[in-house]
Amino acid sequence: MMTKAKLAMPVNLLEKSTAEPMKRPALDSKVTIEQLNFFYGPVQVLFDISLTMPSRRVTAFIGPSGCGKSTLLRTLNRMNDIIPHARLQGRVKIDGTDIYQTGMDVVRLRQRVGMIFQKSNPFPRSIFENVAYGLRINQLVRSRRELDERVEQALQQAALWDEVKDRLKESAFGLSGGQQQRLCIARALAIRPDVILMDEPASALDPIATQKIEELIVRLKEEYTVVIVTHNMQQAARVSDHTAFFWMGRLIEFDPTEKMFTKPAHQMTEDYITGRFG
């Protein structure tokens, strides 16, 4: 399938897709950001960010809108590459490999770092084909049976299988907003990434759908490293293990969530959390 020498990452995709994921030490660092500066043209939007996100944990980015948290999230799978005039300094390492080094394969990177967007964005195809898309283009399955299995598995992981198993052939647009978002999560899970980035995944959903997504996130950390951007502090408190607070493009505080919400180290964090600004 894939030659090992070509793989820029130390972790082999093949191993991950066949074997049960190995239990790694809990606070193994997965994603490391070092002295990151980010610019849109002449405007600097991120200033000297350094941050280490542990493996198999949920890390939340919070802060007022425009603080750069979404931009930072999108540097982790190089989604900002498609924005003209965007420029980055510093390093982003996943499993120790700098993903901005020359020769880095963006396609392969994005297979390992999945992303869920603010607004659900299913393709105008059937439910089944949506989940199968990543498997097909990346040629991750060898037979129709394997494809069916992995689609089902992904839908089950996304807690959607029971709701859609009888209508896999129907258009994805027929699903409710919350279901569409979970379909997008299933679509991302199907190709078995290591890291899942979520950009305010529940901001367009009603409270019940939001609750389902939150439960899902908590379960996902058993297997995946999750990074979530949210403007909802209660949500961050509910789902995350670590929280990073950003303000005006700067990282103000990064701590275990419990500490952040009980005794924040910074006055500014406390003001934000208690709703005094933002």
Binding site: M79, Q111, G114, K119, F123, G134, R187, I191
Partner: peptide, 18 residues
């Protein structure tokens, strides 16, 4: 065509042509 469609494909490891 909304950009979210392009982002969805890219984030799943699609090449530009895909």
């Amino acid at each position: 065509v909304p950009n979210t469609q392009r982002e969805a494909a890219l984030s799943l490891g699609a090449t530009r042509w895909e």
